[in-house]
């Protein structure tokens, strides 16, 4: 049963939609169309000569081992971020759900990192892990590990994963906490009477009941890691060392604005567009439907 609103003036609904439509058209649709068009062109750095080449840019892209490495980096990075931030957030949410005293203060504090800008979060962790002055690098050296994200690709990847996850924990925490609080207490009590210990209750009752939340957050986190972590990477490793932390969005930027390969960069954005569209489809088709029990 959908409620229909009727307007007296037939133009009013269109007038009300206009600002939103204008913003969408100018800032989303038009650039997207531009990117689609540019991905079919080869242009020199100064825009003096332009040639229409059909799908040559895409052919080159998928033949380029560097691009495929970037793809792999992105997958590793995204799933590490999603896994780290979601598991930590779930752990914190389970603990916050149990706390009675000071719960509000605890929750508020946990939400703060979400307000930190990506670049700031990146720089924060960058300093803490700085091989020369960073406290964490110093502690790791104490443990016998010679941390250096300037030279070691693995260290650099871990650094950006930590910085990106840290920022996302708050968001995941909020959703997990809401999910936990929506589980009726009596279910947990029934499971306790049914002889399930706390650990078993979590894995057989609570975790399955949280699965709609978990699935939703998985998609959101992967999208976040794919697209919103540009600032973190730009402020810390700049994709290095030797492309070890180069992810797809960062390569779009470095190829297009530093390498000035506009056609190749546009082709990469089209690939990203396809990825984000398919993730959105997954989200709408599966999540919206499967949330209700």
């Amino acid at each position: 049963m959908i409620k229909r609103v009727t307007f007296r003036n037939p133009w009013l609904p269109y007038a009300l939609l206009l600002p939103q439509l204008a913003v969408t058209l100018i800032f989303f649709i038009w650039p997207a169309v531009q990117a689609l068009y540019q991905s079919l062109l080869v242009e020199d750095a100064f825009g003096l000569s332009t040639e229409f080449v059909w799908f040559e840019n895409f052919e080159e892209l998928f033949a380029d081992p560097l691009y495929l490495d970037t793809f792999w980096n992105t997958v590793v990075f995204s799933f590490s971020v999603a896994f780290a931030s979601m598991s930590l957030a779930l752990l914190l949410a389970v603990m916050a759900d149990r706390t009675i005293k000071g719960a509000t203060a605890y929750k508020t504090l946990l939400i703060w990192p979400y307000a930190v800008a990506p670049a700031v979060a990146g720089v924060l962790w960058f300093f803490m892990f700085n091989p020369v002055v960073g406290i964490n690098a110093y502690l790791l050296r104490g443990l016998g590990y010679d941390w250096n994200h300037y030279l070691d690709g693995g260290d650099a990847m871990i650094l950006v994963v930590i910085a990106a996850s840290w920022k996302q924990i708050s968001y995941n925490f909020l959703f997990f906490l809401a999910g936990l609080q929506a589980i009726p207490r009596s279910l947990i009590e029934a499971a306790a009477i049914d002889g399930a210990g706390p650990f078993k209750r979590f894995w057989t009752i609570i975790f399955p009941l949280l699965s709609p939340t978990t699935f939703f957050l998985l998609v959101v986190n992967v999208v976040y890691a794919f697209f919103d972590t540009f600032g973190i990477i730009h402020a810390t490793t700049e994709g290095g060392p030797a492309g070890a932390t180069q992810i797809l969005v960062y390569k779009v930027f470095s190829d297009g604005f530093i390498g000035l390969d506009l056609g190749g960069s546009a082709a990469q954005s089209v690939v990203l567009m396809v990825i984000v569209i398919s993730l959105t489809v997954v989200q709408f088709r599966y999540i919206e439907r499967r949330v209700e029990y």
């Binding site: 009596s186 279910l187 009590e189 029934a190 699965s211």
Partner: peptide, 10 residues
């Protein structure tokens, strides 16, 4: 037996 039955929905 609980008031809301407390059946495991999944």
């Amino acid at each position: 037996v609980f008031q809301n039955y407390a059946l495991y929905p999944h």
